[in-house]
């Protein structure tokens, strides 16, 4: 069995998540080869073959061209699996490849299941096992689900890749993330507000609880997008990654993007009226209650 791993490169760097692809291939028991649109000075530490296309020619985001390059590597390797991270790069490219090759795609795999692959569904509250009906398949894996064992080592054999094609999408440039005026990374306690707090008017009550703990206010993405809390407080994949001594999640259901930003906290308390909310998976204590009355009771208790 052979797997072609599509590594990622952004803003002049190979992304570390590339090594998670190798960890996944190892679990599969597959032989591997890598394809990368990058540069020769930034190839992965790996003992195998890297099909390398110059980023200077093909750009960091040019999906039509990257698709053609990966197809050229597929021609050379004839892999059983083509594997991406389930990331802004991977989920964008994978369906293009799968459609072109008419292969099954399994998205955001979290585990290898008996007869297929385990993936999350229903906002991460449930799981399903998906089995490709095609002999070969395209797979995207959830970031963080397959962690590499030990430091990656080796230096690859590099074979250059080139295609003659034009892309429809023109990359103009990057916009940096908004400045973070609050460094949540230094806080010992973070109390975060999620959609379950109900309305913007309730934010000060959560902020008061954070203050009662001597901590900072955090927030989940929907609350930031709704304009209830500023982006500088956002915890998660598109915000800050934190690991305080205590993290209190108020009315946060626990989307994978939020969990990725806080699951390494020393102690996690979740307050949610839904006993099955996925935040319960990472919580040391799950308080099943209406969020606002509980937050007020806890603040009052801390002031005693």
């Amino acid at each position: 069995m052979k797997a072609l791993l599509v590594c990622e490169y952004r803003e002049g760097k190979l992304l570390d998540t590339s090594y998670e692809l190798l960890a996944f291939a190892e679990r599969l028991g597959a032989d591997t080869a890598i394809v990368l649109v990058g540069d020769a000075a930034n190839v992965p530490r790996y003992s195998g073959k890297v099909h390398l296309a110059h980023v200077a020619i093909y750009g960091e985001y040019n999906p039509d061209l990257h698709k053609e390059l990966i197809l050229a590597a597929v021609d050379r390797e004839n892999p059983d699996y083509i594997i991406f991270q389930h990331s802004s790069y991977g989920w964008d490219l994978a369906p293009r490849l799968a459609a072109k090759l008419r292969l099954a795609q399994v998205s955001e795999v979290v585990a290898i299941a008996g007869d297929g692959f385990e993936v999350g569904c229903c906002n991460a509250k449930m799981r399903r096992t998906v089995k490709p009906s095609t002999a070969k398949a395209v797979i995207t894996i959830q970031t963080g689900a397959f962690t590499p064992q030990g430091e990656p080592q080796g230096s690859p054999t590099v074979e250059m890749l080139d295609v003659a094609a034009a892309g429809k999408v023109e990359f103009i440039g990057y916009e940096p993330a908004e400045e973070k005026d609050i460094d949540l990374g230094k806080a010992e306690v973070i109390v975060s507000a999620g959609r379950g707090i109900g309305k913007k008017d309730n934010v000060p009550i959560i902020a008061a609880l954070a203050k009662a703990f001597g901590g900072e206010l955090g927030a989940s993405r929907p609350v930031v997008d709704a304009g209830w809390v500023e982006h500088s407080h956002q915890v998660g994949t598109t915000g800050q990654t934190v690991s305080p001594k205590l993290y209190v999640a108020c009315g946060i259901s626990g989307a994978i993007q939020h969990l990725a930003g806080m699951k390494k906290s020393d102690f996690i308390v979740a307050v949610n009226k839904d006993k099955d909310a996925p935040i319960g998976e990472v919580a040391d204590v799950l308080i099943v209650a209406d969020v606002m009355p509980f937050a007020q009771a806890l603040t009052a208790r801390l002031h005693k």
Partner: peptide
């Protein structure tokens, strides 16, 4: 091109 063979809740990581 693919089929769902089962639907189930996530295994509880436990401890909480």
């Amino acid at each position: 091109l693919a089929e769902t063979t089962s639907f189930y809740p996530p295994a509880k990581s436990g401890g909480g």
